[in-house]
Design a protein around this nucleic acid. Structure first.
Lengths: 223, 223
DNA sequence: GTATGGTTTGACTAAGTTGTCAAACACTCT
DNA sequence: AGAGTGTTTGACAACTTAGTCAAACCATAC
């Protein structure tokens, strides 16, 4: 029996390439779950996508639920791993620019992950919240670091006083939402449909510009 | 047979309160579909929620698919109907403030609608895009008006030149995303969990502040 | 080469879900 | 009261899907 032991005890006879099979299942499940959602996904479809027979899914992961959870956890870790802690020392503008850049790239690189997390949230599952809360509590984590950077920039007066958590949410919203509503975005903005790469770069620039410099004409006005 | 004739031919004998039954089905379906998604939803659960027997669902809407589509359309219309065209004449700042206010309130008032649209998008359905595109093409629509207002404000120099479609997307993102990821937001921000009303107001203020005035300290710098 | 371990397969089971139907029902009109 | 309409009900059929199982399979170790 297998049932997902992460490491292969390399002394025992291990027959065909187990690691490969498990990886194929992961990838396939990732795709199908993200496309169809947990309930919409069919084990048969996952098996087909992975090029294996359906009972093998049960051999590697007992139940659909367990497969779902395993994939969810891996996806989240994968996604979180793509973040670097913001470089210390530079201006907040640089930090923010880099954070936006990273975030958008991460979402692009793991297109299913963002949707997955949103879906999980909409279903009311607190899993993501728990994982994120842990990340925020961890001293060195990029999320924590970004929050700290905001606080610091306010103290030094580089940026105006705003609620750091609200700001972080606004930044993340701006970086993720367009990706989650892609079909609509592509219909509303020709560039997104024609040259998505270019669109994404445009979006990064826009988000930074608007958030950092704001809309109000600089000539005009007050502090 | 019934099969969803919107209007009740009031001359014919109509037995028990048909309009009420249909409305109850709508409301129930709305809730359940939004909670569980199209595939996760069970007709039995919808029937229970509506307090009727399951075959009645088929009597009013032949299939699950048709029920889903009917509810989707109604929800979208309901949602769109909550928007007012931005008042002409005022400053762009006022227009933006009002738009944010309205958008957030609409999302709050129809909590399922936002999630529904996002889910629809994630499933790759172009329905929402089509409906929205129609709204944008319509001269008097609030969406169109907002886009025009942005263009105008740029021309008059009230705001700096930005891509209007990108800006609109950023605004909408900031108003909707937090609602779609509510469980996570509540775990990350104590206020959201303790006093959601207050949190929502704080969010409106924040979004306007950041988007309009930007983060950069006003003392510092260039146009 | 044969025994032994984990892996893969095909056939089967059990449960749950959608959709149908004919009979019972309620209301109105004559 | 009785006919006629549209509505509601309970029982049923067809189908899909997750999960099980024992037999076949393969690779290595002896």
């Amino acid at each position: 029996m297998k049932v997902s032991t992460q490491v292969n005890d390399s002394t025992a006879p291990s027959g065909p390439d187990v690691a490969d099979t498990e990886a194929r299942i992961f990838d396939a499940a990732l795709k199908v779950f993200a496309r169809k959602g947990k309930d919409g996904a069919r084990l048969q479809e996952i098996a087909d996508e992975a090029g294996i027979h359906r009972p093998l899914l049960h051999y590697y992961f007992r139940t659909k639920q367990q497969l779902y959870e395993a994939v969810a956890e891996r996806m989240f870790n994968q996604f979180m791993a793509t973040f670097d802690a913001p470089a210390e020392g530079g201006s907040f503008a640089d930090t923010l620019r880099a954070f936006i850049e990273h975030y958008v790239d991460s979402v692009r690189e793991h297109p299913h992950a963002a949707m997955w997390m949103v879906a999980e949230n909409m279903a009311g599952n607190p899993i993501l919240g728990q994982l994120l809360a842990r990340a925020f509590a961890t001293a060195g984590s990029p999320q924590r670091a970004m929050l700290d950077a905001i606080g610091l920039a306010i103290e030094t007066g580089e940026i105006r006083p705003v609620n750091p958590r609200q700001l972080l949410l606004t930044v993340v919203s701006s970086c993720v939402f367009f990706f989650v509503t892609l079909p609509t975005v592509k219909m509303m903005n020709p560039l997104a449909a024609d040259d998505f790469d270019a669109y994404v770069e445009q979006r990064k620039d826009h988000v930074f510009e608007v958030l950092y410099y704001g809309l109000a004409s600089r000539e005009v006005t007050d502090a």
